[in-house]
């Protein structure tokens, strides 16, 4: 029962709330608690006078139409209050674009609840990133959908950074697209990934594959490098490494890389 209790699953009754009136009783009517309703009302009034109340109501409607229940709607708006101020037509357009990209019912709702900021991005921007993923990183359409579903935050990342991360994993670590998607690569920061990989590499436990994709030693799986906590990581791959060593290493390479970047910048400036 995702829809607000009073709405009776009747689109017409929802439509009634899209009028210019936003009031506490009408919010209560939608199924919000007293506190939630007060919060929303207060926010709508504070923001840009009367115009916000209008968008506020339409935003609520769009989210309910998506099938979210009041508590999910509240979660979304608390995480991303800027959604109160976005025009209804834009929101609709963005949602239908996500559907077009392959987010089916269920996935779509989950993405919106976990990462509501996805709805703040113009359709053009999302198209740009998905095109980038397909053309520069050669992910398939299905893989792009999966990335969008598992790691929607990718849409906000700097493309140059993203390209670097992809190339790092593809070339330096020798990992193919399917595995990147399967192990949700884009959820991790480049820094953590690079630190762990470099730690293994300098200990002699990870090798960049040659042109034929071969290595002398068997590299650990991406999953066991990426998706485990530090203790598990050290235990699994570096049986004799202490947390002390890893901590010093992390600080050392951070400084190393910062210096390299600075050096790189200097060279380009010349």
């Amino acid at each position: 029962n995702l829809l607000p209790n009073v709405a009776n699953n009747d689109p017409a009754s929802l439509q009634r709330h899209t009028g210019p009136e936003l009031s506490l009783p009408c919010l209560l009517d939608m199924g919000f608690t007293q506190t939630q309703a007060e919060q929303i009302f207060e926010f709508a009034c504070k923001t840009s006078g009367g115009s916000a109340t209008k968008h506020c109501l339409s935003t609520l409607t769009v989210l309910f139409m998506l099938g979210l229940n009041p508590s999910s709607v509240m979660k979304v708006l608390t995480k991303c209050p800027i959604l109160y101020t976005i025009k209804e037509s834009l929101l609709q357009e963005r949602i239908s674009n996500l559907r077009k990209l392959g987010l089916v019912e269920g996935s779509l709702q989950r993405v919106v609840v976990h990462y509501p900021a996805i709805l703040t991005l113009p359709v053009k921007k999302i198209k740009h990133v998905t095109l980038f993923l397909r053309e520069k990183c050669l992910f398939t359409v299905q893989q792009v959908t999966q990335i969008l579903r598992d790691s929607p935050a990718i849409m906000h990342e700097d493309l140059a950074q993203l390209e670097y991360k992809f190339q790092y994993v593809y070339f330096r670590m020798g990992i193919k697209q399917a595995e990147m998607v399967k192990h949700r690569l884009f959820r991790s920061t480049l820094e953590e990934l690079r630190t762990r990989h470099t730690f293994l590499e300098r200990r002699g436990l990870y090798q960049t594959p040659d042109k034929k994709g071969q290595t002398v030693i068997a590299n650990p799986k991406l999953d066991s490098v990426l998706n485990v906590d530090l203790d598990t990581f050290l235990l699994a791959h570096a049986a004799n490494a202490s947390a002390e060593e890893y901590d010093v290493f992390r600080r050392l390479v951070a400084r190393e890389w910062k210096q390299e970047e600075r050096h790189h910048g200097d060279c380009q400036a010349e």
Binding site: F199, R202, R203, G204, A238, N240, E245, L252, E256
Partner: peptide
């Protein structure tokens, strides 16, 4: 491995 990573770091 522990000596190796130290040698390869600052």
């Amino acid at each position: 491995p522990s000596v190796r990573v130290a040698l390869l770091s600052e």
